[in-house]
Simulated assay, not measured.
Amino acid sequence: MKRLFCLLFSGWLMFAAQAGHAHALDPGYLDLRQLASNTWQVLWRKPDVNGRPMGIDAILPAHCAQNRGPEPRSDGTAWIATWVLECEDDIAGHTITIEGLEQQRNDVLLRIQPISSEPSTLRFTPETPALIIPEQPTTWSVLSSYFRLGFEHILEGWDHLLFVFALFVLVRDPWRLVGAVTAFTVAHSITLALATLGVLNVPGPPVEAVIALSIVFLALEILNRKDGELRLSEQYPWIVCFCFGLLHGLGFAGALADIGVPAEDIFAALLAFNIGVEAGQLLFIAVLSALILVWRLTLPAISQRAGVVAVPVTGYAIGCVSMYWLVERVSGF
C-alpha cells in the first residue's frame, strides 16, 4: 500500500514549507544583443539571495573593453546590470565564464542575439561555468536548455511537486492517475503558452495563492475520503487536474518570465519546457511507486499496520503546509 510511504513522506513536507514560498527555479540570465559590428548591449541578471545579489559574476571575452559589468541594481526580484560592450573582434569562438557559479546550485542562461544570424541560447551550470560562444548557433541549444529548465522546475518547485504527490496519494487507480497527470500537463501547457505570448496577463501573487489553495483542496479530499465511496477528485481526476493545471500553468509562466523566452524560438522553448515538466512529473511518480513496491516486498507486516494512520497523517501534513503557503502568499498581496 501507499500508506506507510505517505507517513514517512509527511515529515519531509514540513521541511518543504519553509522552502516552498518561492519557486526554486531562479537561474541567472545573461543577454548579449549585437548593436553594431563589434558592439553589444549586455543585460546581466543575478538571482536575489536574502536581499543581496548572488555571489556570481559574468566575465566576458578578454578582448572586450569592460568585460565585467557595473554594480547591479535591484528590481524587487533580482539584481540587474546593463552596459555596452566594445570588442576588438567578433566574440564568436571566445570564452564567457560565470565566476563563482561552481559554488552555487543555480544555473545561468546565456542568450546571444547577433545581427546577421539566428539567436542562440546556452546554459552554464556549476559543473560547466565556462563556455565557448559557438560560431553557428542552432535551435538544439534552445531545446536542451529549456527542457532542463522544465524538468528541474517541477522537481525543485515545492508547491507543484506537492500537488502531484497529493494526487498520487488520493488516486489509487494507476490509469486514472496517468490520465490526471496528462490532463494537468495539457492544461498548464495551454495557459503557459497564452501567458508567454501575451494573450493572458495575470498578476503573480494571486496565482501563487490559488496554487496553494489547489493543494488545500486535495488535502481535504484525502482527509474526507471513505472506503467504498469515490470523491469528486477520484471519480473525475482528469477534470479536477485540468482545471487546476490552468492555474499552475500561469505559475510556470511567471518562472519563464523571470528568465525570458527567445522570441525567435518561442515555440521550441515552450515545447521543450512542457516536455521537461512532464518528464519530471512522471519520474517523480515512478520513484514514489518504486519505493512503495520495495517497502511492501521487504516489510509487508509493518506496511499493513502503519496503513491505519499513514493516510490521515499525510493529509493533515499536506493541508498544514499548503495552508501555511496560502496565508503567507495572501498576506504578501
Rank of each mutant, 00 (worst) to 15 (best):
Q136E: 13
A269D: 01
F242Q: 04
F124T: 05
N201G: 13
V311N: 02
V261H: 02
A268G: 09
L85D: 05
K226Y: 12
R231K: 13
L283E: 08
A187N: 01
G28C: 06
E221D: 02
A193G: 07
L291G: 11
T314P: 00
D48M: 08
A290I: 12
L162D: 06
Y146G: 03
V142P: 01
T77R: 14
L293H: 14
K46R: 15
E328N: 13
T82V: 13
F217E: 06
S189D: 08
I259S: 03
V142E: 06
A268W: 12
A65R: 14
A253R: 04
L7M: 07
L293V: 14
V261K: 00
E264P: 09
A306N: 05
I222W: 06
P70Q: 06
P126G: 04
M1D: 09
G245M: 09
R296F: 15
S116Q: 14
V178D: 05
L177Q: 00
L246D: 05
L194C: 07
E102L: 10
L32F: 06
I275Y: 12
E152K: 01
A166L: 05
I154L: 01
G319K: 03
T39L: 15
V308R: 15
F333S: 12
A209F: 03
G100M: 04
V308D: 09
G332M: 10
D265V: 14
A263D: 10
P134T: 02
F184Y: 09
V181H: 02
L200N: 02
E86W: 12
A286L: 08
G315K: 01
L246M: 06
A255W: 01
D90G: 12
L7E: 02
Q235E: 07
Q34I: 07
G245Y: 10
A290G: 11
I285N: 03
A92L: 11
L283S: 10
V261Y: 06
C243G: 13
S74I: 08
A78P: 07
G93H: 01
A310M: 00
A65Y: 11
H63N: 10
L297T: 15
S117W: 10
L101W: 07
F168E: 00
L232I: 15
S144P: 12
V171Y: 09
G251D: 02
R33D: 14
I132T: 12
I215Q: 04
V142R: 01
A16L: 12
V199A: 12
L288H: 04
A166M: 05
I132G: 08
C6W: 14
S331H: 10
G204V: 13
S145Q: 01
V207S: 07
A22V: 14
L85Q: 03
A263Y: 11
A263H: 12
L297M: 13
L288N: 04
N224F: 13
E234M: 10
N201E: 12
G280D: 02
E71S: 11
A310I: 02
W295F: 13
